[in-house]
């Protein structure tokens, strides 16, 4: 029993937090909160950044940072959407349109892989600290997509594509949610049962020691960046579908949000720790707060940021009193 308490202590804390949040909205907005529409909304909204967060999680466990994932994903989706918009003609049937869309998606994923390789190269081959490398890359990606789109929004997506973001099964299960669940299960499986998952935690904990143990650390870091950037791009593809357009700087606020969720969930960027179940709980809690705040007609959506920011700071402070599990305080390393 004591073992379970110790192992899942942080999970229990997050569940407690979720319970408090739910309780709060139940008391204040019982009538409006426990309605099917609210929960449908929650399920429809968090998958896109949920997928991105799961991607970034791999980087964090690996002890790396990626500030560029959103700008890279924006660039990738801009290119995909441009391809789709340019190649779809009104007289095409669904099959042909579908073909164009698939090519577009492949273009986006290809760009994501290239971006990930560049990030990993900068970090592992040139030894640039990840924060510095990716913060510069994010400017480069933003620059390219701004130049290509001339700062404009790319629109004109076919209905077949915008469907993805809006399609609902059985009148309650959104397609993005299914996508999220599938990706979540894959990520969970990777972390728990694959050799890569095992190596990931060890490399994140001490890259040098892993290298001296015969682990190909470069490959582990590269894989983490690829997972991060590809998942971010999948999330962005869903986002683009919901918004029916793409732009060079869509979703910039997601960078902060994804980092915030991971840190709250106890996945800190100094690596080697974090549980995927905690990420899931935190994701849902964060979305419940956002949706719940919207139920108050006198509050605007920015109240959610207010709560998120305060929550992050409080959890960070609390974490300094914890020792074994969850977020621990950390100082600069690598000096």
């Amino acid at each position: 029993m004591k073992d379970i308490k110790k192992k899942y202590g942080y999970t229990f804390m997050l569940l407690g937090l979720a319970a408090i949040v739910i309780l709060f909205f139940t008391i204040t907005k019982a009538g409006a909160f426990w309605k099917a529409d609210v929960w449908k909304g929650i399920m429809a909204q968090f998958p896109e950044y949920g997928i991105m967060t799961l991607g970034l999680m791999f980087c964090f466990i690996c002890g790396k940072m990626d500030m560029s994932f959103m700008m890279l994903a924006d660039f990738a989706t801009v290119m995909a959407v441009r391809h789709i918009v340019q190649n779809v003609t009104p007289e095409m049937d669904n099959g042909a349109v579908g073909g164009v869309i698939i090519v577009g998606i492949l273009i986006a994923l290809g760009i994501a892989v290239v971006g990930a390789i560049i990030n990993a190269m900068l970090v592992t081959q040139l030894n640039i600290p990840p924060v510095m490398a990716t913060i510069s890359m994010q400017m480069v990606w933003l620059g390219i997509s701004t130049a290509i789109t001339r700062g404009d929004t790319v629109t004109g997506l076919p209905v077949l594509y915008t469907e993805i973001g809006h399609k609902t099964f059985f009148n309650w299960l959104p397609l993005p949610m299914i996508l999220f669940i599938v990706i979540f299960l894959i990520c969970w499986f990777i972390l728990k049962y694959t050799v890569y998952g095992e190596k990931l935690y060890m490399v994140g904990s001490n890259e040098k020691a892993a290298k001296f143990s015969g682990i190909n650390t470069t490959a582990v870091v590269l894989t983490s960046y690829i997972l991060c950037d590809v998942l971010a791009t999948i999330g962005a593809l869903v986002m683009v579908s919901t918004m029916a357009s793409a732009k060079a700087d869509y979703g910039t606020s997601y960078v902060t949000r994804c980092i915030l969720i991971l840190v709250l969930a106890g996945v800190v960027p100094n690596g080697g720790m974090g549980k995927i179940i905690n990420v899931l709980i935190t994701l849902i809690t964060i979305q419940i707060i956002a949706t719940g705040v919207n139920l108050f007609s006198n509050l605007n959506t920015y109240y959610a940021s207010l709560i998120w920011g305060a929550l992050l700071v409080i959890v960070l402070i609390l974490s300094t009193f914890m020792t074994d599990e969850g977020v621990i305080s950390f100082k600069k390393r690598g000096k």
């Binding site: 902060t256 980092i259 915030l260 840190v263 509050l299 605007n300 959506t301 920015y302 109240y303 959610a304 940021s305 207010l306 709560i307 998120w308 920011g309 305060a310 929550l311 992050l312 700071v313 960070l316």
Partner: peptide
């Protein structure tokens, strides 16, 4: 990062 989100929430929320 936390205070940034918090301050943005303050000003616009």
């Amino acid at each position: 990062l936390g205070t940034q989100t918090f301050f943005t929430g303050l000003s616009m929320g």
